[in-house]
Design a protein around this nucleic acid. Structure first.
Lengths: 153, 153
DNA sequence: TGGTTAACTATGGGATAACATGGGATTTGA
DNA sequence: TCAAATCCCATGTTATCCCATAGTTAACCA
């Protein structure tokens, strides 16, 4: 499981160390690296191991082959997703499209969310976190036993 | 898995480099190249490895032999599909019918969609991408990753 | 318990190989 | 014989690999 929050540096070549905890999650999987795509919901990146993408693929293949939503998801997720392989030190190189989308500049915040994770510009994440905490406080009753979706520690 | 989006040049001879990641997907298959056909849904091309076509064939053979839709699919896909072999440098030569259908002129955008990919004229794809992102954002709730978390941990 | 060592993580820079692309030569088929 | 497609080699650029360093944490032994 991807857990906790880490800030790592992004060097001049666009390289960033993936937190060791995150690397351990995908170790042993079919692809030695992570897959990252720009969120279509805001200025941050979403990512996970190849297993996550295969889960999405299974969901999408249950939809009608020419459903508009299916085509849209395919293009928005698979079309924009980049497989980023680890180098010998556990780093990946972020393509310019991705770091631009998230507004990354020298630092990146990795946020574990269980089955997937997000990458934010640190300042943007701080603000988002404030909003998210307020939202969680206002909606705490929707988290009940039985809905085992996982909370933030 | 075909992933991400790449723009490559189409030279005067109609040759275009297939992205190395895409070549890796079909490597080891029965045919060292890709199979491409014009989409009947718009001005772009669809393609994949031979394995994809065999999957389509199995689907179509489940349909009624004289179903109009079956005949239409057979003609639209199998009748128009061209196997394009890689040259020593990983390029294929696009026949004129195909580049005409997609309106290709000097540049081609390869879009990975998991089990298959599309080839667009770059300007045409940019417009469709914006639509797809907006549609995906507005319909994100129809994509539910299910409650089971934890893939490879 | 205190001190020392060893392993791992994150980071920086330089060398190397792979990729995309252009042009020419050779073969194939009409 | 001529046109067209295929093959072959050359080149610049980009990304990938490989080395070296520092700080931290964990393990170990006296």
């Amino acid at each position: 499981m991807f857990l906790s929050t880490t800030i790592n540096g992004v060097d001049a070549k666009g390289r960033v160390s993936v937190p060791a905890d995150f690397r351990a999650v995908v170790r042993g999987g079919p692809f030695d690296g992570i897959i990252v795509w720009p969120s279509f919901d805001g200025p941050y990146l979403e990512g996970g191991g190849q297993a996550l993408l295969e889960r999405y693929q299974a969901l999408i293949e249950d939809m009608d082959p020419y459903d508009d939503a299916r085509i849209a998801f395919e293009r928005a997720i698979f079309g924009a997703a980049k497989p980023l392989a680890f180098d010998a030190n556990g780093r990946v190189t972020l393509p310019k499209e991705l770091s631009d989308h998230a507004g990354l500049d020298g630092k990146a915040t990795f946020v574990g969310l269980g089955s997937r994770f997000e990458i934010w510009a640190p300042e943007a994440f701080e603000e988002h976190k404030r909003n998210a905490q307020a939202f969680a406080r206002d909606n705490k009753r929707s988290l009940r036993p039985g809905a085992r979706a996982g909370g933030v520690s």
